[in-house]
Design a binder for these strands. Structure first.
Lengths: 196, 196
DNA sequence: TGCCAATTGGCAGTCACTGCCTATACTGTG
DNA sequence: CACAGTATAGGCAGTGACTGCCAATTGGCA
């Protein structure tokens, strides 16, 4: 972390965090639909035009995650080996263990928000779908089979989102790491025999 | 088919078809984004207000499918047995075989449109997600395991959409029925060993 | 310090979508 | 066959997300 990356880029990133925080505060308090982008801009001391330039849509104020982009290639790394699900499982265990309480709180906050508004859920799905495409393309070029990779990666990501949704619906009772683990087990063995 | 279902409901359904056809024509000709709902309404000789009352959103003019709702319970039927993927595969083979050339043409038309506009792809994903929820809920109540059903059904539907997307990207070269078949094979066996 | 490029802000416009009220069918009764 | 009662369509006005365009500002660099 902490790359120099140009002074200008730094300021932009700082502004994005400031705007996202202001947005989450307002959305938590009044609900996503009841807050206008103009109100967010004012609270973050930026112009609405700038908010749109940075985030594109109102939904992205919630969906956007600085860590998303760099997370793609590690995931691809896991998937191209001999035991993709196993490798992914180990990687995710490690990832969850590294999360602090603050990060988890932020995650719960964003997930709660997402499932409280259909337009946010929609945006999450689109975002995930785009990620799936880029991951699948990378996996396909490493493994050779385009079709199989597309289907599998889409199913995988969607299954994980299902786990996340379950996490939310159960009031965040079960730790997300455990749910992800169980989801991966379902995806690993397939569903052919009900096995019970 | 051909249930009486009340004269009023009939007229509504006929109007929906008229409006959807007008919309698809205009979208094909000028592109989804370049056509306003008002233009669709005018072409279909309805008021914009009515278009919204019937379809809810502009995207639903493309996504809506009369057969979607009644298709849910048969799918659930297949999934609660001992060999869910196998049963689903057989059911889908039969379903595809029953499709006429007209239906296939309409399908290709809609799919082409969907993947030509991000907002339509988004709407498709949301629609599929809602279907997944209702299917998963039904499967869960029959099988007992809520979490497993959620994850599996979401992954399944998403994998099938991946197959559909591949169908589009390959210029509809391979028959969709074959792609669905192959997708189900991927989902059936899971992905643990690369097995090759 | 002064020039060039990039970034930001303000303005006006488009269009999806909604609530509300009126008009107009449709449905089942006397 | 008329007639009340109800559901459905249309019109109107408003909100707010989002965009293109131009002017102002800021930062980078000689």
């Amino acid at each position: 972390m902490a790359e120099p990356a140009g002074l200008q880029a730094r300021k932009k990133l700082a502004a994005m965090h400031r705007i996202q925080n202001a947005a989450l505060d307002l959305f938590d308090e009044h609900g996503f639909d009841a807050v206008t982008v103009e109100a967010v801009a004012e609270a973050a001391e930026a112009s609405p035009r700038t908010v749109y330039r940075y985030f594109g849509t109102k939904e992205m104020l919630v969906i956007w995650d600085e860590e998303d982009e760099p997370a793609v290639s590690p995931i691809v790394e896991q998937l191209i080996g001999d035991d993709p699900i196993g490798a992914l499982r180990r990687a995710m265990r490690g990832g969850f263990a590294a999360l602090g309480e603050d990060e988890l709180r932020l995650m719960r906050r964003r997930v709660r928000l997402i499932y409280s508004s259909p337009s946010l859920e929609t945006a999450l799905l689109l975002n995930a779908s785009e990620k799936s495409h880029s991951i699948a393309a990378a996996v396909a070029s490493a493994r050779g089979d385009d079709f199989e990779a597309q289907v599998f990666v889409h199913a995988l990501i969607s299954g994980l989102i299902g786990a996340m949704r379950h996490w939310y619906l159960s009031g965040f009772a079960t730790p997300l790491s455990e749910l992800v683990d169980r989801a991966l087990t379902v995806l690993e063995h397939g569903f052919s025999p009900p096995e019970r």
